[in-house]
């Protein structure tokens, strides 16, 4: 028996919007720790790791570890039917091949349940090693989204370079090239508008902008984004989900021949 009641149901809607274009089918794993997902895109260039901790749910019952295979597009379709203020409950019986999403309006005058078929998905879990990153950039998520969108109108790849001057996002394409430099800026009144750069070593890596743009679909989940870079490692683009956990995107770099 599994029953997870999430008062902020729209968090789940936002999570699905953030991952459904990157990953088609995925196993959601439910344990005493929380509701999680790890999945790669079909070309194995990007990996998404989601954790919604059990403490973040109003009610969390998970009698045994369960892995539920879902088509994310279908799940997104169902969650779109929930109102933004609705409480969402995820329910599944042991051994069932369906999952039920129950939507309750805040004043309890409307209750809907949507039952979705589960699927068998062969997926392997990857071990993500703890790494010391050369540079960690924290910036407003909307600013990062803007930069990725702007640069992708010029080129296909972005070079992210961190030096003591700041973080530079560069691209080049047929029509020309573009560079955006963001400097550390902690003097603004609101911490969510600041940019902080923690650099242990300068680092410069190249990534496909198409994926970066896809990650920025998680922007509604968090006002800030953390970008962790190390040479010879996938970049981590992390959006914290307030009180609940995180969604992390890992993107393998493009490497010189």
């Amino acid at each position: 028996m599994l029953e997870l009641r999430l008062v902020q149901g729209n968090l789940l809607k936002k999570v699905l919007e953030a991952v459904k274009d990157l990953v088609t089918d995925a196993n959601f794993d439910c344990s005493s720790t929380g509701f999680s997902l790890q999945a790669m895109d079909s070309s194995h260039v990007a990996l998404v790791a989601l954790l919604l901790r059990s403490e973040g749910f109003e009610h969390y019952r998970c009698d045994r570890n369960v892995s539920m295979g879902m088509n994310l597009n279908n799940m997104a379709k169902m969650l779109k039917c929930a109102g933004n203020d609705d409480i969402v409950t995820i329910k599944a019986d042991d051994g069932s091949d369906t999952v039920t999403f129950m939507f309750e309006s805040p004043n309890q005058d409307k209750i809907a349940d949507f039952e979705m078929k589960l699927m068998d998905i062969d997926s392997e879990h990857l071990g993500i090693p703890e790494a010391e990153y050369h540079a960690i950039v924290r910036m407003p998520s909307s600013e990062f989204a803007r930069i990725c969108k702007d640069l992708s109108s010029i080129g296909d790849t972005v070079v992210i370079s961190v030096t003591k001057e700041g973080v530079k996002f560069s691209t080049r394409g047929d029509i020309g090239n573009a560079n955006v430099v963001c400097r550390q800026n902690t003097t603004v009144d609101k911490p969510e508008e600041s940019t902080t750069i923690e650099m242990h070593e300068p680092v410069s890596l190249t990534f496909a902008l198409r994926y970066m743009n896809s990650f920025t679909k998680a922007t509604p989940l968090s006002s800030t984004v953390t970008i962790s870079l190390s040479s010879e490692l996938p970049v981590v683009v992390e959006y914290k989900i307030a009180e609940m956990g995180y969604i992390r995107f890992y993107l393998a770099p493009k490497i010189e021949d």
Partner: peptide, 14 residues
Amino acid sequence: GCNQSTITEFFGKI
């Protein structure tokens, strides 16, 4: 030129 690497080149299966 640049070659796209994959996640599985960095992270091993559990």
